[in-house]
Amino acid sequence: MDANVSNIQHVAKKKTQAKTSARHGTLLYRKVVEHLHQYWQLWAFTLPSIAFVVLFAYVPMYGVQLAFRQFDFTKGLTGGTWVGWQYFEQFFRDPMFVEILSNTFRISMWTLVMGFIAPIVLALLINQIGSPKVKSFVQTITYMPHFISTVVMVSIIQIFLAPSTGLLGRFLGRTSIMGDPNAFAPIYWISEVWQHAGWNCIIYLAALSSVDLALYEAARIDGAGRLQLIRYVDIPTIMPTVGVLLILNMGSVLGVGFEKVWLMQNTLNINASEVISTYTYRIGLLNNQFSYSTAIGLFNSLVNFLFLIMANFIAKRTSDTSIF
C-alpha cells in the first residue's frame, strides 16, 4: 500500500520536474539535488563503508595489473614495464606447478565434500531430538570448537598426534604422523569437520525449523516412519539451502585457507602441503618476487571465480537455485 502511495507521489513529482526543467537547469541536475536533499543522511551513513571498500578492496584489485608488469620499487602498486603474460607462463612452467595445483585441489576437495556433508547430516540428527532442552544443549556443545583460533587448533592437533605421548599419537607408532605427507589432507579435513560442522549446521537447522508441523502429521497419517519423515519432509526442505551453499563453496575449490595449512606445514610434509596460498606468500613476501606472486594469486582468483559462475549456471538450469 505504502509503496503505491509513494509511487504515485513519485510520478507526480516527475511530471512537475519535467515541466520545470526547461526553466531551471537540466533535469539530471535537479534530480540529483533533490535526491541529495532527501537522502543526504543515508549517504552519510553509507559513505564511510564505501570509502573503506574502495580503498581496501578496489585499489588492490586495480593493483592486479602488477601481474602483467615488472615490479618497480620506485613506482609501487601500478608501475613498471608491461610484460604481458610472462609471469603466467613462468608459473605454468614452474616445476612446482603440478604439485601445488594437485595439493590445493586434493585438500580443498576433501574439505569441501566432507565439510559439506557433515553439517547436513548433523542438522538432520539434531532436528530429530525431541526435547528442546537436550537440543539446545547439543547445539551449544557442537558450536564451541568453532571459536578456537587456528593457531590453537593446530597446536592441539600437534600435541594430540605427538608420537608415543599424544592422546592419539600413542596409538600411531613412533614416527610423527604430522610429518607424513599422506596424512596431511586427512588430518586437515578431519580437524576442519570437527571444528566447524556444528557451526555450519545452524543454517540447515534454521531451514528445518520452518517445516510446517502439519506436514509431519499428514505424513504420519499416511503411515510414514521416522526415516521416511527425514527422507520425504526434512531433506526436501533443506534442498534450496543446500544448493546455495554448494554454489558458494564451489567458489573456493582452489581457496584452501592460508593460515591452517601454513601452520601445519613442516619440512617433512611440504611436498603434500604446499598449496597456492602458501606458495604465493613464500614467493611474494619471503622471496620478494612481487609480480610473479601477484600473477599466481590472480590465476587462483580467476579459477575460483570460474567455478562459482559454472556452479551457479548449472544450478540455475537444473534446479532454479542461484545466487545471482
Partner: peptide
Amino acid sequence: FTMFFSGGLIPSYLL
C-alpha cells in the same frame, strides 16, 4: 563483488 574477487596478497601488501 568484493566477496568473490580480490586483488590478492601482494597488491594489498603494497597498498
